Amino acid sequence: MSTERGVVRRPPGRKAQILAAASGQFHRRGYHQVSMAEVAAEVGITAPALYRHFRSKPQLLRQAVDFDLAALGSAVRSGSFGPPALCAALAAVAIDHRAFGTLWQRDARLLPAVQRAELRRGLRGEVREMARVLVAARPELSPADAELLCWSLLSAYGSLSYHTFAPPRRRFERLLQQIGGDLLAASLTGAPQPPAVPQLSYGVSESRREELLVAAVRLFHERGFDNVSTDQLGAAVGIAGPSVYKHFDTKAELLAAALVRSRERLWHEVEAAIAGGGSRSNGGPAAALAAGLRAYVDFALRHSHYLGAMLSETERLAEPDRKAAVDFRRDFLRTWVGLLQQIRPEYENAEARIRVHAMFALVNDGVRNRPGCHRPDLTQCLIALSRAVLGLS
């Protein structure tokens, strides 16, 4: 746009357009796969014009996370009248900012430690404000219980980052509000201790290769594939960096093998529990889902890095390996959706899938979010909250 004097002015909202485009591209492809030129092209400007707004790609990432976090903060403030208003405001933001979940869980790990700490403090502050609203409506809740419920709500809504299901807008918002309302109304006391799930023995020797697989899952999850060197991988198991190549030809091959191992263990434990639960005294789908849920929570508590790496590093795989990972995720989801629809036949396919994704995210985050992850009753809590988002409480 030009003035009468010929001065070119930036269109209003250009910075917000850039941040929205960057968030979407980081979400779909991963931070390392996106160039500044590609973000600029989506907005319809040149790369030099983009650099007038953001000096570097790390700064763009930081401000993209800030942008979504600010939207979350606005929703929390507008929902201060009570849990229904809070769920309504957050549901709208979850739909409009679907990238925030992956941006927060995956790409924000790449920021400097000081910036990550600042972002975590900001998010914790929003959760405390949410908890204040919840306690005003439910004074019987302890601060710790209220915060766990609020973290779980953010996880459930953040799960929209991991799928593309999108019912019509009004119906989508109503579904999310219902899920959120059931979650914030859930009881965390008096839930019986669910029966323990037998842990399967894999008969795997503690070879150097196995040690590398375990270390790789942890490091890739914590730091991101591109931020982990072979020297760091070797040091984690007590060998020199170049010695990693005695066991794996490339770092990418190590990632692929680590994620295959993660999927195998998850499938064997959960599938066995579902099959056993459904066959006991003709327990049926409800018993199968209950057994599978306990197994999934138990697995997440013991192997949170496996689940985290499966979610955050799949896009770094070569195409055949990435396809195998996506196919596994689709099949695993289909098992749960099928069970849920047998119990709740009124759920349409999209609703069942949205609820199952919310349950997975709630558990995956719940075993890592501090201080809640140290609760002695975390297993019971996560099962109760999972049943709430599935509509089974």
Rank of each mutant, 00 (worst) to 15 (best):
G308M: 14
G44E: 05
G276E: 15
L111D: 00
P168A: 08
R170E: 08
G158Y: 03
G203K: 04
P139A: 11
Q115D: 01
T335I: 08
W104D: 07
L123S: 00
A113N: 06
S161A: 15
G276N: 14
Y306W: 10
P143I: 09
Q59E: 13
I179G: 06
I95H: 06
P12V: 12
V114N: 10
A240G: 15
F248N: 13
R375E: 11
F81L: 15
V8A: 12
A71N: 06
F332H: 09
A252C: 04
S23A: 13
L317P: 05
R171D: 15
V127K: 04
R124C: 10
S207G: 00
L266Q: 05
T314V: 14
S35Q: 07
T230V: 10
G82V: 15
Q232M: 09
S159Q: 04
P195R: 09
F165L: 15
Q341N: 03
P143Y: 04
L333H: 05
V133Q: 00
A88Q: 08
I274D: 03
A257W: 00
D365S: 11
N364G: 02
D231Q: 09
H97P: 01
A64E: 00
A256L: 07
L72F: 07
A137H: 00
R120F: 06
R370K: 14
P376G: 03
A70I: 09
P112A: 10
Q380L: 03
G234P: 02
R261S: 08
G30T: 14
R208L: 04
R209E: 01
R263A: 13
L176N: 03
E269D: 11
S229F: 09
L103S: 04
R265M: 09
S312D: 12
E348H: 10
P143A: 00
E42F: 04
